[in-house]
Design a protein around this nucleic acid. Sequence first.
DNA 1: TTGTAGGCGTTATCAA
DNA 2: TTGATAACGCCTACAA
Lengths: 325, 325
Amino acid sequence: MPTIKDVALKAGVSATTVSRVLNNRGYLSEELKQKVQQAMDELNYRPNELARSLSRSKSNIIGLIIPHVSLPFFGELTSHIEEHAYREGYKLLLCNSWQDKQKEQEYINMLRSSRVDGIIMGSHTLEVEDYRQMNLPLVTFDRQISPDIPYVCSDNYNGGKLATILLIQKGCRRLAHIGGHPKLNILSHLRCVAFEETARLHSVRYVSLHTDNNSFDFEAYEQLLDQLFREHPEVDGIFAGSDIIAACALKACQIRGRRVPEDVRIIGYDGIALRSLLYPAISSIRQPMEAMGKLAVDLILRQVQGEPVESAYILPVELEEGATT
Amino acid sequence: MPTIKDVALKAGVSATTVSRVLNNRGYLSEELKQKVQQAMDELNYRPNELARSLSRSKSNIIGLIIPHVSLPFFGELTSHIEEHAYREGYKLLLCNSWQDKQKEQEYINMLRSSRVDGIIMGSHTLEVEDYRQMNLPLVTFDRQISPDIPYVCSDNYNGGKLATILLIQKGCRRLAHIGGHPKLNILSHLRCVAFEETARLHSVRYVSLHTDNNSFDFEAYEQLLDQLFREHPEVDGIFAGSDIIAACALKACQIRGRRVPEDVRIIGYDGIALRSLLYPAISSIRQPMEAMGKLAVDLILRQVQGEPVESAYILPVELEEGATT
DNA sequence: TTGTAGGCGTTATCAA
DNA sequence: TTGATAACGCCTACAA
């Protein structure tokens, strides 16, 4: 691979000059620019980003740690993050934590070694102190770690409220919420809190079930639904903590011959694109994934540039009614 | 951030020695190792991978270019690739090409600048020459570029055959195949070829429909299905080019009141995990995604190490019957 | 067994 | 307006 020196030699100038036209810095005669540019083209020269990064002590890489890209919500979020990062001249290093404490820690170490300019965390299994100590631009999703680490989330409370109100308005009298483990994700647990408060406010009976781990495991959801229909066969409205759970609920109803929405109404959360492939299409509370992804990237960049950031970014959700309510 | 020199100073040794314990090279007394290790721990030292990469001219980064991570098949594949890359000490730079020629080219340039050790291509919109010229360890999925660039794919032909035979065995007499654009992906088009040949062999009438772009667009699929049911209402067996298309087909049947599998039988391709969320669960030809991901990583590593590689790796598929056949 | 010196490819700081 | 020189942080001869 040709280096800056090769280009310099070919163009009959110094490496410094080549660097200057590369970065468009300082005063350069048009003639020189042309000459250098031509040499670069002829050699098919590509600046070595490793060397640049080392020299500038800035890698233009953002690390992304999420539970699993193949989960639709995280897949979509990742796409948006990648898209915006790329537009801003940043690259994305992808890490699937599998919600595993040790893996997450190893990835953080790895990303620090790689001198990423910041880390976007969609997975958080470690202690608050572990994150605070790492002294790197950080952004989290759905998790408040400390006032100086900004987090991005959808308006979980309002989303839970909207969903619950919709079910009640449609005439449901026995509600159920099925969600992930509450302890591990306090902010998205607000969906559940809103559900319970709204149900109580309207004097509607309800039950809340949660997985006991944070594994996003389809089978765990199916077991919960099994339990739900066994112990509470009278349930006629389900607010699922995610569209995936909602899909499980829909399937559980179909298996048991419960008509949706006639016998049981279902609404999910997230608004993933794949939702439209189901029949009937699932109603959902849509998170503004694109805006969230863009914001997360911007928050890293602002921190990199030493600009101040708020500690919380709560984005509005939108009720998207499908055919399950 | 502390450097190797800081560690050396603190441990009272030279930087070389620190480098040695870091890389566990050469002869070192236990005592020294301990001392250096302690200094590293106390300083919370992390070796700068940028500097290491520059010095060794090896970045331990693999670039992955795919159409879109949020497509379930690519999401799962990406997860496996990331997993195996990480195990081998490699990091993954993620690029979504959106099947866009220009974006793909820009990403390739970017990855070359980043001095990635190799590129795994799940997206290929450029000309064969463009790939051949880049002179970097490369692996492609479902695309044969040249004898010296290995490709990984599932046994597309056999998969198409298995699917078609199953439909015929179940009694289907009017078959349809719905797939992506045939020109852009010659290898996965073999699924279609096998479908047609098998149908002819069994004297079963069939029709093949394809999207006219390579966009993985849900709506395009829906339009095709619309066309299918309009022009060929007698179809009683559908072989879909992917599980996503199969899901669309299932939905199309449900919307039109066609019972599945009684009136129409459906089988997809890929074997994505989300398949199990549908009801009825979709039958599919399962690609060994984990093995394919691992293999792709291994093929990059072998090329990096100068080991020879074959030009084609065709992995066996498996028929996974759900409830739609 | 440990240390010194030079180089990896760029960029930044001075001079000229 | 351009060029020489010293970093950036690490690794690898070569010495000692």
